[in-house]
Design a protein around this nucleic acid. Structure first.
Lengths: 333, 333
DNA sequence: TATAGTCATCGAAGCGGTTCGACGATGAAT
DNA sequence: ATTCATCGTCGAACCGCTTCGATGACTATA
């Protein structure tokens, strides 16, 4: 393995000169730069990332922390992972992905050992135990998901309240007066998945303001419970003319369930939901829905994190709720 | 940030002594070990991963390389990612996940800069361009997926040929004499996704041996093509009594398509497929199928990689095809 | 013509660990 | 009573790179 010393010797200059040629932090004559370039190619030299990290205290790596809960639909998570990874790479960072079941431990481990320059926390809950670990860390973090206390933290999330209002407005405008709402499983609420109740509460509040009926329900996360609960919910409200589905696992199987019941959309029932474009494409979901935009979310989180990593202290904390976009797909009437 | 020097000073010993106490590579008296432990806790010391990596030439990080192709179904990939990540962590390794579109470049980048001790390549194709980069690297690699030339490489894959034979046998045993086979999209074949034609060829060969009819077809990867092609394929073979689906995207939407056609499983059509248990659970797939076992595959790949990383040279190259397991779910008659 | 900047380069120190060889103090074996 | 190992510890060197301050050679300024 060629080191910077080998390159220096080959080019007949000092190591520091090679370093400066590499970084461009000091002027180097054209001629020397040329000799150095040739030496680098001849020896196949690449900077040793560890040594550079040690010298600069910058690893150029971002930690990505995720946890898989039984009550979540794994395919949805992938969208966020990809978005974070891609935008990090665009900014020159690599991703250390940690799926430890011990979330706080993982945060502490990778930050205190200086493996990363910053972390992105996915799927943050109301009282996320990882936040204490993050606050204790030297490195900054960006959250996707809304904790109770956002002080000193950069958080990014969809504006679920607004999403709910948009969907209720849409249905109300079409004349619907009795709506069934399918939320995530009760577990998610208990665990503090704020997105769940932010969406539900806003929907209920909006419906109340219009004086229309809305029936909130919890969904299930595992088959065969999903189908069973879906049927039970629809059975219980035969008068309802519209369904709002805020539940990834349920929405994936909804088409076949509706079919089994002989329900035609939108003739018999209007259906709206909340999912990302990619997700909808994977599962052939033809429903009018609000985009969850994992790509925008992931990108913003990473960009902000990088900004904070480069000017520590200077960047004020932000809580950014990206505005939902309604995509009409003709599943409502 | 406390360094090993701070700990040494606090404990009144030399830095090397602290290091030996940490690693246990030389005997340390109980009393000094105690003083060192106290100092470590008092100062909240953690070894700096970069410095250690520099000194030992071991990063304790494994690179995980993946690429998302348009013709693949993203949710299936997640299973592998998780399996690799989990088993790596169990062995003390972290995962550097790289989703670069430039696969070979990514391999070279992370290996030549010594960011990782080894790499896992997911979804390896017949003539995978990443393999040259891997061969040129100092670090060993483990592949998931089968390349044309496996020399000097450790490859892990499901025995797709055997899987196909098991499914054909199963159907033949039940009396089926005309079978429709739905393969991955043509793109996958062209790109060199060996699993696609290994499965297809084995199925065709087996059917020929039994003297029964089998009709191979390419599937699609994106809606609405999936549904359209599924219907076209079924329309074309009205006599067929069984369907083998080797196509993640199609299998996810198959239930609703069959329903739309008024086809009852297994009364009107027997259906078998190939997917992992988790995948089936996510999508409510009730089909008799061969397990793809991403968890076993990921685990074996990582374990072998780690073994090779610790005794370089000593470990002979392996090509391991894990044996498929048939799970009867009652979708055949 | 003396003076002050630039420009290009070098040497040395430092980042935070690990590891090798040495060394004094013990205890066991001869 | 010597000799030999073993035990526990230390100092120094090294891993590969960055960066600070210094230096000599030029060029522009007064």
């Amino acid at each position: 393995m060629a080191t910077i010393g080998d390159v220096a010797r080959e080019a007949g200059v000092s190591r520091s000169t090679v370093s400066y040629a590499l970084s461009g932090k000091r002027p180097i004559s054209l001629e020397t730069r040329d000799r150095i370039d040739r030496a680098i190619h001849k020896l196949g030299f690449t900077v040793n990332a560890g040594a550079r990290a040690l010298a600069t205290s910058e690893t150029m790596v971002i930690g990505l922390l995720l946890q898989f809960h039984d009550d979540e639909f794994p395919p949805a998570m992938l969208q966020y992972i990809l978005a974070v990874s891609t935008s990090a790479r665009e900014l020159g960072y690599d991703i250390l992905m940690v799926t430890d079941s011990d979330g706080p431990g993982a945060v502490t481990r990778i930050t205190s050992s200086n493996m990363v320059d910053g972390v992105v926390l996915l799927d943050v809950t109301h009282e996320d135990p990882r936040l204490d670990a993050l606050r204790a860390a030297r490195q900054p973090g960006a959250l996707v998901g809304l904790p109770r206390n956002t002080e000193e933290l950069d958080v990014f999330d969809l504006d679920f309240g607004e999403a709910a209002r948009m969907l209720v407005d849409h249905l109300y405008g079409l004349g619907h007066r009795e709506i069934v709402l399918l939320s995530p499983p009760r577990h998610v609420f208990d665990r503090g998945g704020a997105y769940a109740w932010r969406f539900r509460d806003a929907a209920v509040e909006r419906a109340a303001r219009y004086g229309i009926q809305i029936h909130p329900n919890y969904g299930e996360s595992q088959q065969p419970g999903i189908t069973r609960s879906l049927n039970a919910i629809l059975d219980a409200r035969p008068q309802a003319t519209a369904l709002i589905v805020h539940n990834d696992a349920s929405i994936a199987v909804l088409p076949s369930v509706l079919h089994d019941r002989g329900v035609q959309v939108p003739r018999d029932l209007s259906v709206v939901s909340l999912y990302s474009q990619d997700f909808g494409r994977s599962f052939l979901l033809p429903y009018t829905a609000v985009e969850t935009s994992p790509d925008r979310l992931g990108r913003e989180a990473v960009q902000h994190l990088v900004r904070r990593m480069s000017n520590p202290g200077d960047v004020p904390a932000v809580a950014k709720f990206i505005e939902p976009v309604l995509t009409i797909r003709g599943s409502t009437a």
